[in-house]
Design a protein around this nucleic acid. Sequence first.
RNA 1: GCCCGGGUGGCGGAACGGCAUACGCGGCCGACUUAAAAUCGGCUGUCCGCAAGGGCAUGUGGGUUCGAGUCCCACCCCGGGCACCA
Length: 821
Amino acid sequence: MADARYDPQEIEPRWQEVWARERTWEVPNDPTAAGDSSYVLEMLPYPSGEPHIGHLKVYSVGDAIAHFHRRTGRRVLHPMGYDAFGLPAENHAIKTGRHPRESTDAAIVEFQRQFRRWGISIDWSREFGTHEPRVYRWTQWIFLELFKRGLAYQKEAAVNWDPVEETVLANEQVVDGRGERSGALVELRQLTQWFFAITRYADRLLADLDTIHWPEHVKTMQRNWIGRSQGAEVIFGCQSLGVDYPVFTTRPDTLFGATFFVMAPEHPDVLRLAAGTGNEGAVRDYVNRALAADTQERGDVLKPKTGVALGRTVTNPVNGEELPMYVADYVLMEYGTGAIMAVPAHDERDFAFAAAHGLEIRRVVEDPDGDGELPYTGDGPLTRCGPEFDGTPNREALPEIVAWLEREAKGRASVNYRLRDWLISRQRYWGTPIPIIHCPRCGAVPVPEDDLPVLLPDVADYKPRGRSPLAAAEDWVHVACPACGGPADRETDTMDTFVDSSWYFLRYCDAANDEAAWDQAAIDQWMPVDQYIGGVEHAILHLLYARFITKALADSGLLPAHVQEPFADLFTQGMILRDGEKMSKSRGNVVSPQTIVDRYGADTARAYILFIGPPDQDADWSDTGVEGVHRFLGRLWRMASELAAAAGGPDEPPPADHGGPDLELLRKAHWAIAKVTYDLDGRFSFNTAIAAVMELLGVASRLRDETSPGARRFATATAASLIFPFAPHLGAEAYHLLTGRRVWEEPWPVADPAMLERDTFELVCQINGKLRDRVEAPSSAGPDELEALCRAAPNIQARLDGQTLVKAIVVPGKLVNLVVR
RNA sequence: GCCCGGGUGGCGGAACGGCAUACGCGGCCGACUUAAAAUCGGCUGUCCGCAAGGGCAUGUGGGUUCGAGUCCCACCCCGGGCACCA
């Protein structure tokens, strides 16, 4: 055995085979089962090519948690599936002509193979891909449920068109005016599209953030995205045309400071207002230029404030003043009413516009301790607002002004959101067909539930040409209207793939159900997800949509009432970098999990990725760092196999003589148990947990020749048991070698408090807060005794000569600090 | 501009207001070996000193405290998010 080597390529398949044969990680739905249940879920992978290092990280984190939950007595649901619809497979199909189903299914096979090879403890009985008809049937069913309640609706609107992907995109998928995937500048197009009415849930999506345990920065991003603003809608009448224009403002307290009025170039009334005023030509030119500019250029905050006068006025309802009207591109049609009252003294944008166009700037809020500089956006007493309000602090006056507007029917309290309804139609092939039939007589008619799924037809040409490729499948498109039986056409758009991933976690609870999307009892047993794990890049898109769909389904009575949120706890992992940069093929710095697993085994790959640093932070991959973890696992294996081969069977009792090195080693083992348990219990501190097991093994190795085999056996088996969540094959192997038992069937070890206490400790002796000496002190010693021990310490004594002791700070069990002068 | 993170050895990182630098990497020295690999052991913040020992170090500057990487104030740098949202 002396030359035996740690051979993960032999060990790992052996245990994987046991887990597969015995279906170890399958967990049936059993409402009568004793004990707590736990639903541990990592964000489902998009199957393309093969898994990358980020997948290895997310499943290493999730699996460690799943194992820890199991061994601390919980029944754990830990399933796997694939977000199988989407653009990359389809773009690949356009290039090669190969059906997206083929490349997707091939990728899924590769993902399955690698996940098994990594030894992730997955309940494979619940596996599915969102592209399977048995699954997307229910995606369509959910669409129809939303349609019934008016939450799925069609409307014509200015939408984001990605000219490269040739499809519309949701607001959330446009970043800095560019398509999230393609990077192409998006264009605004006026189109009729399907939307989900997520804005109706804006308030609850905001409020319920307080009920979930998510990282604060993710909650903040969602709050910002929803962008709730409280204020008032105020009506400004244009008397010359006899039209009222409401505006939204968060500062009705500044109404008396309004000196002009601005409309967005897209506002439908702009040309009508300018007509016949002499400004018509200038307005027309301005509007045309504004509409032609791309969204990025238009959105530049630093761009000078441009605009032209409309040649008309509106009346300020609070004081009857006539305010000149302008059109300017800093006002957005899509927020509020597309028109604003401008208060240049107290708004930076209005100030910039007024300065550029020579307009009046009228201060109405005083700056209590300022230098009188404008614009001033802070609070203070009102001025120039008439006797009723002058001198009143603006925040107090605000509700009074709103109340006055309501009494006069010139306005009302109002709330606005940044959030827009979720545009879910895509003019693309590889997605869930929208189950609607358009009938010239009956309008948009839902496909009857019994006719679901609406199967995705095969087409010859996947390329979108400004319309969905499905439109070419004419046999499929032309159907009889379910309502009147007359000739009708199917909806040819497919759904955004984020719809699929907004409910997949519900399906895992009852994945084999062919009668319904799920049985409520199954949902009741598992939901909400106790621990969700994934990348922070989904902080808005997926995580907001999933919350919305969950709430919408709960409101329809399709989920138990207590399921208001999908993910009770969220952990966002950082990225794995190489040389400080993202891994990418173009940079040529990609580390493939396959290569690492081939060379070192899955346990090394998994343990290293958790050891590299705090998992919520980005971490730089290091080739030599992997070697270090591999060496450590090899040491653990070697110690276990040497002890197993040596005299003394697995049932040898723990050493009776708890003294000397044996005691030291046993104490270290219990310390490690306490440390790893603390680190895993909701803290995700995997790096320090693994370091603790390394320390335990280091002590066992250092005391190799002085300790009894029983003590070493206990220490090594403990190390195996503690490392199991991070390196399951080796943990199982080493534990089995030493005890003949299966570590995953063992309860998580519990530290013996008596073993964590010591008779003596090292007393830190300080003078004026500086460490000067250390002495051994009895744990039972009182403050006086500790102070005396400290003063007697050699390095302390020498320094006390000629000094006056002012006072002594004694922290029992830790230190004594002598304050001297 | 606003809102979050984060700045600690040569590197990744550790540290309930109480021994800064755990653990790992790298480096140096040694053991084993004919040799190498593998493995094992020791040293490794920095400066002064033969040594004992001491000075200085957690982005910068202040403060609170017996004691600050940790708390407070101001600032600098890096990363991320939001950004003409009225």
